[in-house]
Amino acid sequence: MPFSFLRGLTLVLLALCATGCATPKSYVVLMESPDGTTGAIVVETANGTTRVDKKMDAVALDGKSAKTFAVEPPRIEQDFSAALKAQPALPITFRLYFETGTANLTKASKADFQNVLTTLRERGPSAVSVIGHTDTEGKSKWNEQIGLKRATAIAEMFKKEGIKVIELVVTSHGESNLLVKTPDDTPEPRNRRVEIIVR
C-alpha cells in the first residue's frame, strides 16, 4: 500500500512537472489582440530589458532569465482561464451622421440608431460617451454648440427609449476632431457626426 501510494505521488509530481516545471512562477505572455494583430511588450527586470513581439512568447518576471520562451496553450488555460473568462465585453464605437447645420439624423443614420439601441439593450448597463462633431463650415464657436446639440439629441433619444446606463457623458469637440481632414469652411457630411462609445 505505501509503495503504490508513493508511486502514485511520483506520477502526479511528474505530470505536474510536464506542464509546470519549465515555466517560472511569475511571467508575462504576449497574446494576439482581439483585432487579430499582435503588438509588443517591453519587460524590465533585474536581469535586463526584453522586448517580446511574438504571440505566445513570454518572459519571466522573477529574475531567473531575461530570455523569451514559448508558452503552450494548456499552460495558458491552466493559469489564466478565470482571468480570461472575466474579461468585459470589448468597447464598441458607433458613428451617426447629421443633416447640415442641424441635430437631425440623416435617413441612413436613423436606421443605424436602431442598431445602437439593440447593442445597448443586449450588453446591459454600460458606460456610454456621446461626442458631437461638425464639419468646418461656419465659425468654430458655433460648431462647438452644434456638436453639443447633436450629442444631447442622441442622449435624449436614449432616455426616451428607456436605456439604462452606468454613466452617460455628453461632450462636443465641435470642428476640432475631424474624421476627414478638410480646409476651413468646407462642408463634409462625414464630419457631421456623433460618436457613441459603449464600454
Partner: peptide
C-alpha cells in the same frame, strides 16, 4: 508594474502571472 518587473505596453494584449 509587478514586484519584480515593469511591463511597458506597445498596444497589445497580454497576460501576467505573479506568484510568491
Amino acid at each position: 508594474n509587478t514586484p519584480t518587473g515593469t511591463i511597458g505596453v506597445r498596444g497589445t494584449h497580454f497576460l501576467v502571472k505573479v506568484d510568491g
